[in-house]
């Protein structure tokens, strides 16, 4: 397997460059691990804080999904040459693609600058990112519709947004599955938005890490994992129902 060999060589070179091949590094990691294990444990007295932070995280991610989906629903028809003048379609497409090229966490930095730190910045960042991501997906599903369906709806007299919604409902399963994907993505991202001050549980994780209070930090990490698992499970159930 030439690909496997190539990857092995590249991995070795990169690991060497990054200093990962240094034996003393691994010795130090071992010592830290041994020292860290006795400290493992959940600080139940922080559970209240953690749950509140999770609630905020969930709000941020859900708003990102619902707001982003709504905006994408409106943007996608504008981005589709089937439903909108080619020049407008090109511009809207370019904008939607630009939005999704920038990672959500960088949008969060921008919104922290614009509206100040806190969950508002995070919610805006996820809404924006989600709208860019879903707009691209939605206009692709508009393009993919069967031409004869499009024709018969045109003849009925459908155009613009109602026509787009009819075509969306034709691609409903795929669309819902992508919205669920964004839900999972948003929840994961919302847990780290706090690293840049954009709200959510991530704020507490960095806060306690900076104080070298590993047990407290770990408590928030554990609660984060619970939320992620819960959302993935919910999404799995909903997907199966499609």
């Amino acid at each position: 397997m030439r690909l496997t060999l190539t990857m092995a060589v590249i991995t070795a070179i990169l690991a060497y460059q990054l200093g990962l091949l240094d034996p003393s590094l691994w010795a130090k990691a071992g010592v830290n691990l041994v020292r860290f294990i006795p400290e493992l444990g959940v600080r139940w007295d922080l559970a209240g804080d953690a749950l509140l932070a999770l609630y905020e995280t969930l709000l941020i991610s859900l708003l990102g999904v619902s707001g982003g989906t709504l905006i994408a629903y409106m943007l996608a028809p504008l981005a589709s040459p089937l439903l909108s003048p080619p020049r407008v379609a090109f511009i809207v497409r370019t904008v939607a693609n630009a939005i999704r090229t920038v990672p959500a966490i960088l949008w969060a930095v921008l919104f922290v600058i614009l509206v100040g730190p806190g969950p508002k910045a995070g919610a805006l960042a996820l809404t924006l990112y989600t709208s860019g991501y879903l707009a691209k997906f939605f206009y692709e599903s508009l393009e993919a519709t069967n031409r004869e369906l499009y024709d018969s709806l045109k003849v009925i007299g459908l155009e613009g947004l109602p026509l787009a919604f009819a075509l969306y409902s034709h691609a409903k399963k795929l669309i819902i599955s992508n919205i669920l994907f964004m839900l999972e993505y948003n929840v994961r991202t919302a847990t780290i938005l706090g690293f840049v001050g954009a709200g959510g549980i991530g704020y507490y994780i960095v806060h306690y890490l900076n104080l070298l209070n590993y047990q407290a930090a770990l408590t928030f990490v554990v609660f984060t994992l619970l939320l992620v698992i819960l959302i993935d499970f919910t999404s799995y159930i909903m997907r199966r129902r499609l």
Partner: peptide
């Protein structure tokens, strides 16, 4: 003539899943 013609294509033009 909007809305006064109905066109039933070979594939019928129905929306599946609905």
């Amino acid at each position: 003539v909007k809305g006064r013609i109905a066109y039933i294509p070979q594939t019928l033009g129905l929306i599946e899943g609905e």
